[in-house]
């Protein structure tokens, strides 16, 4: 039995996420991922632009 003396190469960004998506959604993973990315982009962009604050300041559920 051989021991590994070298670490495997670092995974490419998004690879694990893609594997998760494939497990969840199978053939349609790409489509779902695209829809989610589009939605996240809008959310992030809105937050950058508008700098919204949480309301209420103290969470209702602690």
């Amino acid at each position: 039995r051989t021991e590994r003396s070298v670490q495997p190469p670092a995974e490419r960004p998004g690879e694990r996420r893609m594997a998760e998506m494939k497990k969840l959604y199978g053939a349609e993973a790409d489509k779902i991922q695209a829809m989610e990315a589009a939605m996240q982009l809008i959310f992030d962009r809105n937050c950058d632009k508008k700098q919204p604050k949480y309301w209420p300041i103290i969470p209702l559920k602690l």
């Binding site: 809105n46 937050c47 508008k50 700098q51 919204p52 604050k53 949480y54 309301w55 209420p56 969470p59 209702l60 559920k61």
Partner: peptide, 10 residues
């Protein structure tokens, strides 16, 4: 409030 975030847990 012009823009806000609501927590999903709330």
């Amino acid at each position: 409030q012009a823009a806000a975030l609501l927590r999903c847990t709330d």
